[in-house]
């Protein structure tokens, strides 16, 4: 009996070691090689809408990472018990539950962020990135790998949102500040900011030029 236990734990140990390397592989993959925003071009609505300031972008990223992590873990756990025919509704209910938890916690603990994110916080439910990861990854892979995937994709999303909101806030207001603390103030721009970067059209402009820049430098292969 004991011997059996031991061999089982040994087998699981080698399994964990093997999955550790694939853990890092899945984790790193999401950040650059399949960056959700710049390469897969998914989840554009929140990316463009909340990227007008660094605070909003970081708050949104934290929310997306939380929901992605929670839904990937639960979906990977129930993947064998879910009938194939109703898997999409099941995924949506799991995601919606985590979004409800997130919305209520933001409302309770971070009211200013909750106000400024507005309807984009509940709209995480229909963010293509999260349902996409559930369908493509978590429904076919074990829990540990799904966690790696969620963290990687979440950080990739954060990176993209950070770059876009950095450019928009810097040129649109001439200053940079995180959670009320001013980091940087440009001499001329802060008096005469380029307001177009803060306007909705600035979001389209910045992501358009960023995508073109990435393609031109060869970071992303074009169509």
């Amino acid at each position: 009996m004991e011997c059996k236990e031991e061999s089982r734990s040994l087998a699981s140990e080698t399994k964990t070691r093997k999955s550790m390397s694939s853990f890092w592989k899945e984790f790193l993959k999401g950040i650059v090689v399949s960056n959700p925003v710049f390469i897969l071009v998914l989840g554009l609505c929140p990316t463009l809408a909340v990227s007008s300031s660094l605070d909003n972008a970081l708050g949104m990223s934290a929310g997306v990472i939380f929901v992605l992590l929670g839904s990937n873990i639960i979906i990977a756990l129930i993947r064998n018990a879910t009938p194939n025919l109703v898997r999409i509704p099941v995924f949506i209910v799991v995601i919606a539950t985590f979004v409800t938890i997130l919305t209520l916690s933001f409302e309770a603990y971070l009211p200013p962020l909750y106000e400024s994110l507005g309807i984009y916080l509940p709209l995480i439910v229909v963010n293509c990135i999260i349902l996409g990861r559930a369908e493509v990854f978590a429904s076919k892979n074990p829990v540990l790998l799904s966690i790696a995937d969620a963290l990687g994709i979440g950080l990739g999303f954060t990176l993209a949102l950070f770059i876009i909101s950095f450019i928009r806030e810097l040129f649109g207001t001439g200053t940079l500040s995180i959670f009320g603390r001013e980091l940087l103030k440009l001499p001329v721009l802060s008096e005469h900011p380029l307001t177009i970067f803060i306007l909705p059209s600035g979001a389209f402009l910045v992501i358009g030029f960023l995508l073109a820049l990435f393609r031109w430098t060869g970071v992303i292969k074009g169509e």
Partner: peptide, 20 residues
Amino acid sequence: CPKAMKGLPIAFITAAILSL
């Protein structure tokens, strides 16, 4: 248009002008 702009990037920039 420039090769790097073809497809999505130029569509985004068009959307920016429309939005304005």
